[in-house]
Design a protein around this nucleic acid. Structure first.
Lengths: 121, 121
DNA sequence: CAGCATCCCGCCGGATACTG
DNA sequence: CAGTATCCGGCGGGATGCTG
């Protein structure tokens, strides 16, 4: 029998913590993209996502860097060049996210179908 | 070599779709709780989460029901009684989310430590 | 090129009150 | 008990402009 999780206490609940961090719009996307490409520059990530604003990408990357999921390497040159890579911690999260993507790929059609069938926006 | 994902097109990108649906504050939490308890009434879910408002729980459950992840059974009696259970589709998602929880449990301390060490809010 | 600063709008979601 | 209805404040996040 598994021990149950205390969802009620925000501070001690890992589920809440993880959702607070990766529930935002771009974090998981960035991790998945860096997982595919190993190393990317700021603009390259932005182009890959396509619809993210410069501001939000900067905020997201800073958060991920602070969490220790992404490492940032600055080349002291003009024009500047900054490369982003997943850390080992980030790499350990990657497969879990990829599992979610896999599930999404396999089941999104059914979910979309359900929505349409029930005529919900 | 894995085929790459097109993150740019929102409509066809399963990652974006899944994040749009489960990136919200409560959906994953509800799925995880129902995964533990099998069947729960509205008030029981609310008590388990603790901090969710009545409104948001109702909205969340309705969304999950529309997606076909949660089933809703109404007992025609007074006072009313409604039970929520994961569907097979919901059950298929459950282990992926539990993997994330497991990862969070194992690594949240390190992440929190990173944050503190870098003195970010 | 890689960002920070500022302004500002939309909507997420909380509080409260009401119904079957 | 299990919801809807309404109001409304906060902030996520887009647009734009400026810097090293």
């Amino acid at each position: 029998m598994k021990s149950k999780i205390n969802f009620a206490e925000t501070e001690n609940c890992p589920v809440r913590n993880i959702l607070d961090r990766f529930g935002d719009k771009w974090s998981t996307l960035v991790i998945l993209i860096l997982g595919e490409e190993k190393t990317l520059r700021f603009n390259e990530i932005q182009k890959k996502i396509g619809s993210v604003s410069q501001k939000m990408l900067a905020v997201t990357l800073k958060k991920l860097e602070a969490d220790g999921l992404v490492s940032r390497k600055v080349y002291p040159q003009v024009p500047p060049k900054v490369e982003y890579t997943l850390t080992n911690l980030g790499l350990s999260l990657l497969p879990k996210l990829q599992n979610l993507v896999k599930w999404a790929n396999e089941n999104m059609e059914e979910i979309t179908g359900n929505r349409v069938a029930r005529q919900i926006k």
